[in-house]
C-alpha cells in the first residue's frame, strides 16, 4: 500500500482572492488511503476554496496539487479537462441541470470523455447508458429516470449528484458540504452513499462538513481547518473538545 503513489498530494497551496489577504495560507496534505476524509472548520475558513482548487474550479495563487502524476495548478486545456474528468464533485446545492431529465444529468458525468459533436447528438455509448441506469438503481431512483431534475426533492437531487460524480469513473470524489441543505436522516443516507461508492471504487472521498458528529461517524480521518491553515490532521477518534476549541474558537457552544 505504501509503495503506491498517493491519490492526491497538495504542497504549499495558497489562494488569495484579494492580494495580500490569503484565504488559504499554505496547505500541505497527502491523501493515500481510500474512504471518507472529512474536512471540518468554521465558515469562511477556506474549506470550499480548498476543494475547488483541487479540480480547478478556482485557480490557486501558489503551490502544487499533484494528482494522477500531473500538477493540476499548471494544467491547461485538454490536460486540465482530462484531470477534471477523473475528479467527481458533489455540490452543496446539488447543481443539477434542472431542465434536463434525471438520466441526462447522470450521463453528463461522461461529457469529459466525449467530443462536443457527440454531446450535441446525445451520442452516449450503450455502455455508458447501462452504467447510468445501474447507478440510478444503486442510489434508489430508477423510477425517476425520465423525470426532470427539478421535480426531485433535495435528498433525491443529491443522490443524482452523487451518481453523476461516480459516472465519471473518478479517482477521487470531492464533496462540498453535500449534506448542509438536508435533514439529519437524509444527510446520513447521503454520507452512507458516499462511503459506499468510495469503498466500492477504492477511492478517497474528500468531504467538507459542518456537522462534527456526522464527520466522526463516517470518516476515519478528519482534517481540521482554521483561518486558512490545517490545525488537525489525524484519526477521527483524536478529535477532542480541546481540538474543536482550537478549530472553531470559543467553548460555550461545546456544552
Amino acid at each position: 500500500m505504501t509503495t503506491n503513489p498517493p491519490f492526491l498530494e497538495i504542497k504549499g497551496l495558497k489562494k488569495e482572492y484579494v492580494a495580500g489577504k490569503p484565504i488559504l495560507k499554505g496547505i500541505d496534505l497527502t491523501i493515500s488511503e481510500p474512504g471518507i476524509i472529512a474536512i471540518i472548520g468554521p465558515s469562511g475558513t477556506g474549506k470550499s476554496t480548498l476543494i475547488r482548487c483541487i479540480n480547478r474550479l478556482i485557480d490557486s495563487t501558489e503551490g502544487q496539487i499533484i494528482f494522477d502524476e500531473s500538477d493540476v495548478c499548471q494544467a491547461k486545456g485538454t490536460l486540465l479537462r482530462q484531470l477534471r474528468r477523473q475528479v467527481g464533485m458533489v455540490f452543496q446545492e446539488y447543481n443539477l441541470v434542472e431542465r434536463l431529465s434525471v438520466i441526462e444529468n447522470v450521463l453528463t458525468g461522461r461529457l469529459g470523455y466525449m467530443s462536443s459533436w457527440q454531446a450535441w447528438r446525445r451520442n452516449f455509448s450503450q455502455n455508458d447508458i447501462n452504467t447510468a441506469f445501474e447507478l440510478l438503481d444503486a442510489v434508489g431512483l430508477s423510477d425517476h429516470a425520465k423525470n426532470r431534475a427539478d421535480s426531485l426533492s433535495g435528498g433525491q437531487r443529491q443522490r443524482v449528484g452523487i451518481a453523476r460524480a461516480v459516472m465519471q469513473h473518478p479517482k477521487i470524489l470531492l464533496a462540498d458540504e453535500p449534506t448542509s441543505s438536508l435533514d439529519p436522516k437524509t444527510a446520513a443516507e447521503i454520507m452512507e452513499l458516499l462511503a459506499k461508492f468510495s469503498r466500492q471504487k477504492h477511492i478517497p472521498a474528500l468531504v467538507n462538513m459542518h456537522d462534527v458528529s456526522l464527520a466522526r461517524k463516517f470518516a476515519k480521518r478528519i482534517i481540521g481547518m482554521a483561518e486558512g491553515v490545517i490545525v488537525y490532521d489525524g484519526d477521527a477518534d483524536g478529535i477532542t473538545d480541546e481540538i474543536l476549541k482550537q478549530i472553531y474558537g470559543g467553548e460555550e457552544w461545546l456544552n
Partner: peptide
C-alpha cells in the same frame, strides 16, 4: 451553479454550453 457542475465533469467549452 449548473454551469460549474458541468465544467467539473471535464466537459469541453462547447459541451458546457450545450448541457448547462
Amino acid at each position: 451553479k449548473q454551469v460549474e457542475a458541468i465544467r467539473a465533469t471535464g466537459a469541453s467549452f462547447t459541451s458546457v454550453i450545450l448541457f448547462s
